[in-house]
Amino acid sequence: MSFIDHLEALRWHVIRSAIAIVVFTLAAFLAKDFLFHDLILGPSRPDFWTYRMFCQLGQALGSPELCMKELTFDLQNRQMSGQLSMHISTSFIVGLALAFPYTFWELWRFIKPGLYPHERANSRGAVFFVSVLFILGLLFGYFIAAPLSINFLASYQLDATIENQIDLQSYISTLTTMSLSCAFVFELPMIVFFLAKAGLVSPEIMKLYRKHAIVVILIVAAVITPPDVSSQLIVTLPILLLYELSIHIASVVRRKDVSRLNQQLADHQGVA
């Protein structure tokens, strides 16, 4: 295929991805009550699933302080077009998140024909695992990282006379940023898998630079979370676990590559 033919093929993949994003965005926009009352504003109420689970855990451990009876903050809109703007922008963000697996599949369909047969075999299941990790990260961000951060920051007071009246945009920005950031951070094992397949990283290098990686992880957690230690720790711990998992994945890739090379060498010597 010529360069123009490749651009034409890419154009249709982009168009189909854009259509999927628009469809999911419109669906989210039309489902306004569910989107905002149940999904977006859920972590702002004490009956949210995460808070109820922590309350049950507290009762089982004999620690009633884990139960959150109320969240001491009010959400306010201070701009004339604020609620409409947030409705549109939030619907678009939700549309992007819901369409991500299909969008990645379209991108993979464009890349896959250019791979060698052994590269296609090595990357089998890439769309599935990328999608699963994205969804797991999104769920972790929405149900764990974001609500705990919102609860801590909203209930933090310098003095009892100061009321927390939080702007709607600030609340939604915190929720969506943390959820999407966790979703993309959870792709670390797949990124390491492809880098290991390309020979760019190895388990030895990852172990050697583990201390440096911890510093980078702390910096990343500080960037994607609000400025409080609890939120940073909540995000840092799973990233550290993902890094250790990535080391194991790189080791598996190394063993399979060595085994394949040994088999090819044995076959070549047998033919000779």
Results as ranks from 00 to 15, higher is better:
Asn164Lys: 04
Thr236Asn: 02
Ile234Arg: 01
Leu218Asn: 04
Tyr209Glu: 01
Ala160Gln: 09
Val215Trp: 00
Leu158Gly: 15
Ala160His: 07
Ser155Glu: 08
Ser259Ile: 13
Phe186Gln: 03
Val229Leu: 10
Ile205Gln: 12
Tyr171Pro: 13
Ser246Val: 14
Glu204Leu: 14
Thr225Ala: 03
Phe152Ile: 13
Leu218Phe: 14
Phe152Gly: 11
Ile214Asp: 02
Pro227Glu: 00
Lys256His: 12
Lys256Gln: 14
Ser173Met: 14
Met190Cys: 03
Leu218Arg: 09
Arg210Glu: 02
Phe184Ser: 03
Leu168Met: 14
Leu180Ala: 05
Leu241His: 00
Asp159Ala: 14
Glu187Gly: 03
Tyr171Met: 08
Tyr171Ile: 04
Thr161Ser: 12
Tyr156Ala: 11
Gln157Lys: 15
Pro189Asn: 04
Glu163Tyr: 01
Asn151Val: 08
Pro226Ala: 02
Pro203Met: 06
Ala160Met: 10
Arg255Asp: 08
Glu187Trp: 02
Glu244Gln: 13
Arg255Thr: 11
Tyr209Ile: 02
Leu240Gln: 09
Ser251His: 05
Tyr243Phe: 13
Ile191Met: 12
Ala160Trp: 09
Phe152Lys: 10
His248Gln: 11
Ile234Glu: 07
Thr225Pro: 10
Val252Ala: 09
Cys182Pro: 00
Ser230Thr: 15
Asp167Asn: 08
Pro238Ala: 01
Glu244Ser: 12
Leu188His: 07
Arg254His: 13
Thr174Ser: 15
Ile214Tyr: 02
His212Pro: 11
Ile219Gly: 06
Gln232Asn: 10
Ala154Thr: 10
Thr236Met: 13
His212Tyr: 11
Leu168Tyr: 15
Lys211Ile: 14
Arg255Asn: 03
Phe152Gln: 11
Leu168Glu: 14
Val253Trp: 04
Pro226Lys: 01
Ile162Thr: 04
Val229Met: 05
Ile249Asp: 09
Pro238Asp: 01
Lys256Tyr: 12
Ile217Trp: 06
His212Val: 13
Asp228Glu: 15
Val223Gly: 07
Pro226Tyr: 00
Phe193Asp: 04
Ile224Ser: 00
Val201Pro: 08
Lys256Cys: 07
Ile239Cys: 06
Asp228Trp: 05
Thr236His: 03
Val252Gly: 08
Gln232Gly: 10
Ile205Asp: 10
Ile162Leu: 05
Thr236Leu: 10
Ala213Thr: 15
Ile205Asn: 10
Val258Ser: 09
Ser259Leu: 15
Pro238Ser: 00
Tyr209Arg: 02
Lys211Leu: 13
Leu242Ser: 03
His212Leu: 11
Val185Lys: 03
Pro189Cys: 00
Pro203Leu: 04
Thr174Pro: 11
Thr177Val: 12
Leu233Gln: 00
Ser170Glu: 15
Pro226Leu: 00
Val235Trp: 11
Leu180His: 05
